[in-house]
Simulated scan of single mutants.
Amino acid sequence: MTQITKKILCFGDSNTWGLNPETGKRYDESARWTMLLNQQLGSEYKVIEAGQPNRTLVNNPPFTGELNGIRYLKPYLEQHVLSIIVIALGTNDLKKRFNLAPADIATSVTQLISSIEQFYSPADLPQIIIIGPLFINPQPGLSRIYLNYEQKLLPLNVLFERIAQEYGLNYVDISKLKAPLGSDGIHLNYQGHKQLSELLSQVVLQL
Rank of each mutant, 00 (worst) to 15 (best):
S43N: 14
I70S: 05
Q202D: 11
S115H: 14
L188N: 04
N99C: 07
E44K: 08
E29P: 00
D184C: 11
D124W: 08
S121P: 01
C10N: 07
L73P: 02
K6Q: 13
S197T: 15
P138S: 10
L41W: 05
Y72H: 05
I4N: 12
L37Q: 04
N148T: 11
S30A: 13
N99M: 05
F98N: 09
S175V: 01
S201A: 15
H193D: 09
L41I: 11
D124R: 12
I163H: 07
Q40R: 08
L89D: 03
I8Y: 00
I129A: 02
Y76Q: 08
G185S: 07
G65N: 05
S83T: 11
P62N: 09
I84Q: 02
L41D: 04
S183P: 03
W17T: 00
K95L: 04
G18V: 01
I8T: 02
Q206V: 09
N68Y: 03
P155T: 15
Q118S: 14
V172L: 15
V204H: 01
F119P: 05
A179V: 15
L125S: 05
I131L: 15
T110R: 12
L154D: 10
L67H: 08
Q79Y: 06
W17F: 12
P75N: 07
E117R: 13
L73Y: 03
N60E: 13
K74D: 09
Y167Q: 15
L153H: 04
L207N: 13
Q127G: 04
F98W: 07
Y27Q: 03
A106N: 12
G192K: 10
L181G: 01
I136M: 14
F11E: 03
Y45A: 06
D104A: 14
E150P: 00
S121F: 11
L153P: 00
N59T: 04
L181S: 04
L9W: 01
N92M: 12
I113V: 15
F119C: 06
D184N: 10
S201C: 13
Y76M: 11
P133L: 12
P180A: 15
K74T: 14
Q195V: 07
R97Y: 01
L94N: 02
I128K: 00
I84L: 01
S201E: 15
A179D: 15
S143C: 06
S183L: 12
G69T: 04
A103R: 14
L142V: 05
Q39G: 06
G90A: 07
I145V: 14
S121D: 13
Q195I: 03
E66S: 09
E44V: 09
N148Q: 13
H187Q: 08
T5W: 00
L147V: 09
N148A: 10
I136L: 09
H187G: 02
I105P: 00
S115W: 04
E150Q: 14
L205M: 14
H187N: 14
N60W: 02
K25N: 12
L112D: 07
G141I: 07
E44R: 10
P140C: 10
W17A: 09
G65K: 07
D13V: 06
S114E: 15
N38Y: 01
R71P: 00
Y27A: 06
I174Q: 15
L37A: 07
H187T: 11
L188C: 02
I8H: 01
G132W: 00
Y120L: 05
I84P: 00
L19K: 09
N20F: 01
N170H: 11
N20A: 04
P21R: 06
A88Q: 08
G42C: 04
H187V: 10
A101W: 03
Q206D: 08
